[in-house]
Amino acid sequence: NQESVVAAQLIPINTALTLVMMTTRVVSPTGIPAEDIPRLISMQVNQVVPMGTTLMPDMVKGYA
């Protein structure tokens, strides 16, 4: 089963992602794949992401 990127903390809107903000977990439905974490660093979220929420492609500016 593929791991997806999950918020390790509350991420406010327009925050640039850092490694410490993200963790990985096997979730359903699947979100952004864990191997894309290096690509996500410094990208901004376009909404508030509560802790434990799976990051979906449409939540990250410039990802999709």
Rank of each mutant, 00 (worst) to 15 (best):
M43F: 12
P57Y: 05
G62M: 08
S4Y: 15
V5K: 00
T15Y: 03
P29H: 09
P12K: 04
A7I: 02
Q47C: 06
V60H: 01
T53G: 13
K61C: 15
S28H: 05
S42Q: 10
P12Q: 08
R39P: 03
P29N: 10
N1D: 15
V5P: 01
P38Q: 06
V27S: 11
K61T: 08
A64Q: 13
R39K: 14
T24D: 03
Y63V: 04
S4V: 02
V6H: 04
Q47N: 06
L19G: 08
A34Y: 09
A34H: 11
A8L: 08
L17S: 00
D58T: 15
D58C: 15
G31T: 02
V5M: 02
N46S: 13
T53Q: 08
I13C: 14
V48H: 12
Q44M: 05
M21T: 05
T53I: 14
P29I: 14
M56S: 08
M22H: 01
P12D: 06
P12I: 03
V45L: 08
V6Q: 09
M56H: 06
M22L: 14
I11D: 00
E35V: 14
M51D: 12
T18D: 08
T53K: 12
P29G: 12
V60F: 11
N14W: 07
D36F: 09
I13A: 08
T30F: 13
T53C: 09
M43L: 13
T54E: 02
L40K: 00
M56W: 03
V5C: 03
I11F: 01
M51C: 07
V27H: 03
I41C: 03
T23F: 06
L17H: 00
V60Q: 00
V45N: 03
T54Q: 03
G62T: 05
I11G: 00
L55A: 01
S4A: 03
S28Q: 14
V5N: 01
M59A: 14
G52F: 15
T53N: 11
G52V: 02
S28W: 03
S42W: 08
G62V: 05
N14T: 04
Q47R: 12
N46K: 14
N1W: 05
G62C: 15
Q9H: 11
V49P: 00
A16R: 04
L10G: 11
S4D: 01
E3K: 03
I11C: 02
S28L: 04
R25K: 15
T15R: 04
L17Y: 00
E35H: 12
Q47D: 12
T53F: 09
Y63K: 04
T24N: 09
D58L: 12
A34W: 07
I41R: 05
P12C: 13
T54P: 07
P50T: 12
